[in-house]
Design a binder for these strands. Structure first.
Length: 596
DNA sequence: GCCGTTTTCGGCCCGACTGTTTTCAGTCG
């Protein structure tokens, strides 16, 4: 394909549009725009980043205004960006504010106002220029700034220089974040006295993919002693402040730790506030204001009662009920429609899937490929988790990482599975495979062999960079294969480490819904693929989901937990997930049986 | 710039901390 045609066929990625909107928001902020306008750009950027369809295409068709936070103005700007590669307003502002100035606003303690002040007073236009001015002690002479600020600037610059690439700032995957948070909570609880409680809040409690800060809340009658204890914990590197209301520090793994302390009767308010998300809380407060209520970490204030009558809540449920809502599970608190759903008796809220709903594991590996345990060991472990069935799905012939399983080897593996199944009590062991989807969409076993299997997962493991159109066609071809039961880790992303490959998920979901092919939430905490947002869209499109651990040894069968977390964040119920069903019912859902 | 069971115009959350101030602005979560 000639480049022009190629470029025309490709739409600007949502991530690039979101970056451009964020930059424009930053520029407007430097230009002194009111905060709400700046916020509008940031909200829109987040919406675009989370969108599962091409926002560029939507904007061209005039449908982007249906997205939350995007109106006519932003739609027009997105359209200009897609068609010309730039937004005129951004071009104009870039002349006024060099990109180095935006970099400066990333430093802690410096926002748009101070950056603009430094720019106008001292002509500072980059971190380098800022360092020079601060070193020469010229910053302290600017009206409104001082010596302390100047020192802070230098140490912030040093810190940024010591950790090049601000994006590499430590983020913990959820399991490590929860482990750290729970260890800290235990450490703080010990000896904290009767009635004291310490809990993990923040994005770790919401079970997000990764976590930037550990948020802890505590209620106790001896707050100062508890705050001081933070510095003594083995996981803590340093503590910058500690008082009766909380403490802040840094863990050795490089994430900051924020502890807030309150009184036992306000536990609900504290926990609700510090669980967030920030956007959920902001939206909650906005809705509350319309009813004359003011929500904060200290309680709920009513205009009717006057300013001195703050109502405190011991439980989060009371907080939500105080503003006329039903309780909202932490996993849903992302301002993705949960607040509206919680009004009106909570009829719009889903009954979220739970770990206990899962009846079987449908994707795991053994020593036949790159796993560490035998069929029997995996089956025993699955039975101990309370499962009714487990499908052994080793990699296929061309995998290339572990031991490839040749067709003859797969036939022997099927026999071994049958043999284990025959003597195993309490769990059904099924013969399966995780078959490669080759670049052309073909599978690497013959249909005749695939037909002997009880369960077929098809996954992409190679040629990630082939482009959206080809990758989508490749995936859809596998989805249309009559013997493919499920698609494994559909986007190939690795949280923090690797972006998903380019793929038209809308088309993929439509094909899966049409053919009755299941789509996986891979529960490996590195993957969690589909993501929460994608899984929700898949279910909305009528796709049935399967949650798999992709375990390579017995202990990682427990990774199912992280897949459940993603499913809950995706608003999924037991009905949305296929492996909440007994094996017989699950088999009836497979397309090879549906077709008959 | 967005948005509407109070509005198509005029609203648009809440509080802590810090440093610079003589009562507050800026930043952060």
């Amino acid at each position: 394909m000639p480049w022009d045609a190629y470029a025309e066929a490709m739409e600007l990625p949502n991530g690039a549009i979101a970056d451009a909107l964020e930059e424009l928001g930053d520029l407007y902020e430097l230009d002194g725009a009111i905060v709400h306008r700046v916020l509008a750009y940031r909200t829109a950027a987040k919406t675009v980043r989370e969108a599962t369809v091409s926002v560029g295409t939507l904007a061209r068709e005039g449908r982007a205004v249906a997205l939350k936070g995007i109106g006519e103005t932003l739609q027009e700007k997105i359209r200009a960006l897609c068609e010309t590669g730039t937004i005129p307003a951004a071009e104009k502002l870039r002349v006024k504010f060099p990109s180095g100035l935006i970099e400066i606003t990333r430093l802690p303690g410096i926002g748009a106002k101070r950056a603009r002040l430094l720019h106008s007073a001292l002509g500072i236009d980059s971190p380098q220029a800022l360092r020079e001015a601060a070193t020469k002690q010229r910053v302290r002479d600017v009206k409104g700034l001082g010596a302390k600020f100047e020192e802070g600037v230098l140490s912030a610059l040093d810190l940024a220089a010591a950790n090049p690439g601000e994006h590499s700032r430590a983020r913990l995957l959820l399991p490590q974040a929860l482990e750290l948070g729970e260890a800290l909570a235990r450490g703080l609880s010990e000896g904290a006295g009767e009635g004291a409680r310490v809990m993990v809040a923040g994005s770790a409690r919401r079970m997000g993919d990764s976590v930037k800060d550990i948020d802890l809340i505590a209620v106790t009658k001896r707050p100062v002693a508890l705050a001081k204890r933070l510095a003594q914990l083995a996981e803590i590197e340093s503590v910058s402040s500690a008082s009766a209301v909380g403490a802040r520090g840094r863990a050795h793994v490089g994430v900051s730790v924020d502890l807030r302390i309150g009184k036992p009767h306000e536990l609900g308010n504290l926990l609700q506030h510090f669980t967030g998300s920030g956007r959920h809380n902001a939206a909650l407060r906005e809705l509350a204001v319309k009813k004359g209520l003011h929500v904060s970490e200290h309680g709920v204030l009513s205009d009717a009662d006057g300013p001195r009558r703050t109502r405190t809540c011991e439980s989060e449920r009371e907080v939500y009920e105080a503003v006329g809502m039903t309780y909202i599970e932490p996993e849903l608190r992302e301002d993705r429609g949960e607040l509206q759903a919680a009004i009106d008796g909570g009829k719009g809220l889903p009954k979220l899937i739970q770990q206990e709903d899962i009846r079987g594991e449908l994707h795991c590996h053994t020593i036949a490929s790159d796993g560490h345990n035998t069929i029997e060991e995996m089956a025993v472990a699955a039975r101990e988790l309370g499962y009714e069935y487990v499908a052994i799905t080793d990699h296929s012939a061309t995998h290339g990482f572990g031991n490839d399983v040749s067709p003859d080897e797969l036939r022997r593996q099927i026999e071994r599975v049958r043999e284990v199944d025959a003597r195993m009590e309490g769990i059904a062991v099924k013969a399966g495979s995780e078959v490669n989807i080759l670049p052309d969409g073909e599978l690497d076993y013959e249909d005749e062999l695939l037909g002997e299997l009880d369960w077929v997962v098809a996954s992409v493991h190679t040629a990630f960079g082939m482009g959206e159109e080809a990758m989508s066609a490749r995936m859809i071809r596998a989805i249309e294969h009559p013997l493919v039961d499920a698609i494994g880790h559909p986007t190939g992303r690795m949280i923090v480490r690797r972006e998903p490959y380019a793929i038209d998920l809308e088309a993929v979901f439509a094909a899966a819904a049409r053919t009755g092919t299941l789509i996986e939430i891979n529960a490996n905490p590195d993957r969690r693929d589909l993501s929460d947002v994608h899984a929700r869209n898949a279910a909305k499109a009528g796709v049935k989901i399967v949650i798999d651990s992709d375990a390579h040894k017995v202990v990682t069968l427990a990774n199912m937990r992280w897949g459940i977390a993603t499913a809950r964040r995706a608003w999924l119920t037991r009905e949305d997930v296929a492996n909440t069903r007994p094996w017989e019912e699950l088999v009836g859902m497979r397309k090879r049986n549906r077709a008959k």
